[in-house]
Design a protein around this nucleic acid. Structure first.
Ligand SMILES: [Zn+2]
Ligand SMILES: [Zn+2]
Ligand SMILES: [Zn+2]
Ligand SMILES: [Zn+2]
Lengths: 158, 158
DNA sequence: GTTGCAATGATATAGTGTTTCATTTATGTG
DNA sequence: CACATAAATGAAACACTATATCATTGCAAC
């Protein structure tokens, strides 16, 4: 898991982009400049970013930057698993796992807003059983835990 | 679990209100008219409602209805466990369980937006272990499953 | 009564996301 | 290459969600 601890970030960005390129080439998807750049921004920051925060970055680079530019790129990235949406924050984060279908879960620090992606089993145990009992078909689950990361917990109770 | 199946709804509303009144009286909380009415609306509809949808209802009743009216009432209700926020829908739903501290989880139909609250254990198993390993302190978890309810699944694939 | 605090009223503003339609760019076909 | 098709982008306007701020009112404690 990457996230709260430090790591070789340059490598982390390069691998994320290379992986997305490979996957898109294999699947016939088009990782266009705008999409690629948004993914790169998310990988660079390595944190959850709002769509308008991403837009500001694009503007600073001289690109056209109306809201749909960001939302379209983000829809592509989330649909194909390169990024995830954090419902709790109305924000987006680059995926830190392989492109194989996975059910993401997140640890969100309420003090610094940093996000760590944890790997969990695709079908939630208890919730899955409740769904089955109700005749409900689960297609996707959102699992987000809000709390304090080690750094912020150490900095004293907020 | 109440939600997708039918039930005695009048009784369901009355019990929800009575329970909130008892709890507030016991805890010295003030279930003011605005707060009580918003809870009643949520109980009546028995579905997730947006804040502005609730506002429309209040307006129709001649009450003042600026956004803070709804958001203040909803903050009170969610803080004390009478209602929950559904992150996925930017909406709110009356709690269908007792006021004891519980970690709610929801089944959300993507076709009709109806929501069912399921009871699950407070500390998520897998996510809890991941948090512990990372030194992360979980304070609250969001668990929302998106899929198809029995009625919408039966109506044919969307 | 008056002091202190919680709740409300009212206005404005901030933040997030979508619709729409015209235009361009890539892709495939005769 | 010429053409048809579909995907992606550009651009403007709009819709939805939520908060900030400050004055005022209601209520209880002292
Ligand atoms: Zn992921
Ligand atoms: Zn933190
Ligand atoms: Zn509940
Ligand atoms: Zn349904």
């Amino acid at each position: 898991m990457t996230g709260f601890e430090t790591h070789d970030h340059g490598d982390c960005i390069a691998r994320g982009l290379a992986q997305a390129e490979r996957y898109c080439a294999a699947q016939g998807l088009r990782l266009t400049p705008a999409r690629r750049r948004v993914l790169e921004i998310l990988l660079e920051e390595h944190r959850a970013m709002g769509a308008y925060e991403i837009l500001d970055r694009l503007r600073a680079e001289g690109r056209g930057a109306q809201p749909p530019v960001a939302y379209r790129a983000l829809e592509f990235l989330t649909t194909h698993g390169f990024a995830h949406r954090i419902e709790r924050l109305n924000a987006f984060v680059a995926c830190t796992h392989a492109q194989d279908r996975h059910a993401p879960a997140f640890l969100i620090c309420r003090a610094c807003d940093r996000v760590t992606e944890a790997e969990v089993a695709p079908t939630a145990g208890e919730l899955g059983r409740a769904a089955e009992a109700a005749g409900f078909t689960i297609e996707r689950t959102v699992r987000e835990a809000v709390g304090l990361c080690p750094a912020c917990a150490g900095a004293g109770p907020a």
